[in-house]
Amino acid sequence: MAYSHKQFMGEREAKPGDLLQGTLDLLVLKTLASGAMHGYSIAEFIHETSEDVLRVEEGALYPALHRLELRGLLASEWGVSENNRRAKYYRLTAAGKKQLIAETEHWGRMSMAIRRILETA
């Protein structure tokens, strides 16, 4: 049957070459490693920390947050923001922390490999 488990659950598989999704997940996990944040500040944090190089689109950020939550890597709860508004805060779960370590390592190897290829050329 052409139905995979994920498809049944309504997730879409990442298209091949779609590096960005995995990368965004990693960045989000890393950002939340320092503590709970809401969506807006996550985007701002990545934007500022990358010195304005990386800009996270809202259209990508929120599906990523929800997906990570569904996978159990993030937990969320409603809280009050710095300007007294209701905001949804995300934080890493134990599984999320493990995933962050694993993915950081993976990313390290990948970027090294890519650099090596680029340098030989």
């Binding site: 049944f8 929120y62 599906p63 929800h66 997906r67």
Partner: peptide
């Protein structure tokens, strides 16, 4: 404008959570 199509985004998030089948 920057945020893009809110309705579609909502749909994407919602679909993720539901048992479509």
């Amino acid at each position: 404008r920057d945020f893009g199509n809110i309705a579609r985004l909502k749909e994407a998030c919602r679909e993720m959570r539901t048992f479509v089948s």
